[in-house]
Design a protein around this nucleic acid. Structure first.
Length: 258
DNA sequence: ATGGTCGTTGGACGA
């Protein structure tokens, strides 16, 4: 069994104990982290290596920051930290090849609110991402794209679609961009299994969002056709969200017969 | 309850 996962930890410094516990319990082979919020010199490499994981990271001060944890037998090759054609100091992308698997970890911009400068940046970023993913899917058979996409793909991924209608994370251009990603030959692994609503990966810290299940499903594991055929489960693990001082995101985890 | 909470920071800003 091969396991791929993703988790927006919202500060790796604060969440390191949760991460180490979760690694111990779940033993993913590849895990993409987002919002590490650490410069590379402050990355807790030793603690993660002591847990049995090789790690690569692309960080910055205060914001963003991504990492990939690996316990496959392969060293990462062809490491990419930027979208082609986008000059951007924000550290949101980390891709690497492990054996025959191309693993792409993303922290898609939030977009703040529809019509804002940050929203325009998000749409431009997504356009460049689609070009990159199209090219990656042409080059590799086994592709896994994980991350905090900051897009709820459909109304069933939203606790109250009327409240969120046309809002950031749910707007039509964002959802169309998500569909374009799937159009590259990818599948939303979660929807290969569960079809219901009320299943979320993020809940606002405010207003007791988690307790009331006022969430969105914005963290995803996309898989290419070759991996779709051997994917045996894809779940959202809400357990860490119940702990003291949790990330506002839950980890997502997919399993493959490989 | 016309706001609510975190994290990074050392006053706001981003989410």
């Amino acid at each position: 069994m091969f396991k791929a996962a993703s988790w927006n930890v919202n500060s790796l410094k604060v969440r390191l104990p949760h991460l180490l516990d979760w690694l111990q319990a779940n033993q993913p082979d590849l895990l993409g982290l987002q919002e590490t919020k650490l410069t590379d010199e402050n990355f807790p490499r030793e603690e993660i290596e002591n847990a049995g994981y090789q790690v690569i990271f692309s960080g910055q001060k205060t914001y963003n920051g991504v990492a990939i944890l690996n316990k496959t037998t392969s060293d990462p090759t062809d490491i990419v930290t930027d979208l082609p054609g986008l000059k951007d100091p924000q550290r949101r992308v980390l891709a690497a090849t492990y054996g025959d698997i191309r693993f792409i970890n993303l922290y898609v911009p939030n977009g703040s609110e529809v019509g804002s400068e940050k929203y325009a940046y998000k749409l431009d970023w997504l356009e460049k991402l689609i070009t990159y993913i199209k090219e990656q899917c042409a080059q590799h058979t086994k592709v896994i794209v994980v991350g905090d996409f900051n897009i709820a793909p459909e109304d069933r991924d939203v606790h109250d679609p009327a409240v969120w209608k046309d809002a950031v994370l749910c707007s039509r251009p964002e959802r169309e961009a998500f569909q374009h990603l799937l159009g590259c030959g990818l599948h939303d692994s979660f929807r290969l299994f569960a079809q219901g609503d009320g299943l979320f990966s993020w809940w606002d810290y405010r207003a007791a969002g988690f307790r009331r299940n006022l969430g969105l499903r914005i963290d995803h594991i996309l898989v290419s056709n070759a991996l779709k055929n051997v994917c045996t489960s894809s779940i959202i693990d809400t357990e860490p969200r119940k702990l003291e001082r949790p990330s506002d995101h839950a980890p997502v985890l997919a399993e493959f017969k490989l």
